[in-house]
Amino acid sequence: MIGQYYSWGLLVVLIAAVAGFAALAFEKDDLHRLLLIDLVEIPSLGFIALLGTDLAEALILPGLVVGIAELFALSQIYLVKEGLQDRPVRALRIEVVQRSPAPLVLSSILVVYGVILSGFTGGAIAALGLIFLFLAKDSADDLHLLELASGMSWVLWIAAFFVFMFLPEYWYAALMGAAIGILIKVVTKLALVGTMWGEQA
């Protein structure tokens, strides 16, 4: 059933890709180039999605992550190269938020909910709570703790991978290890962005 529509879908995505790349070819401004590349990434997800199987959904995640990660690194390089680093970034300067325990309560709700969900989405939700806390508190906390947690979750993740590959009968332990590992990893990575943002205020 997918087969007869595949080429039509491909036509639409390819036209989008041609339009995006053509715009990129004519653009002179560096910042606009970065934004246009973000636009061109969308057809690349479209190519994968058109596969239309469960495999496609699993392949979209690496595709998306690679795009976001490189975009993050490039935007930092852009800031340094244009000398924009020293500009103050406004954090959440809301008096009520800064003085009351509300951010703590809200972020702990988000973190607990994220832990219940677990996995990638849970990590994103828990990280949102931490980012909000860092933004509202207006102070940089210990980056070392975050980095340590990130490293530990990485080890957990790789260990889970090797269990899956070489001791497949313990698949349940590996699944739990990978789920917890990716939860902590996403949390720490996104929280790092939160502190980087908050520190400059």
Binding site: V65, V66, A69, F72, A73
Partner: peptide
């Protein structure tokens, strides 16, 4: 590999 890319970019 995907998480390695994420790690390098960060």
């Amino acid at each position: 590999v995907e998480t390695a890319i994420l790690f390098i970019a960060f």
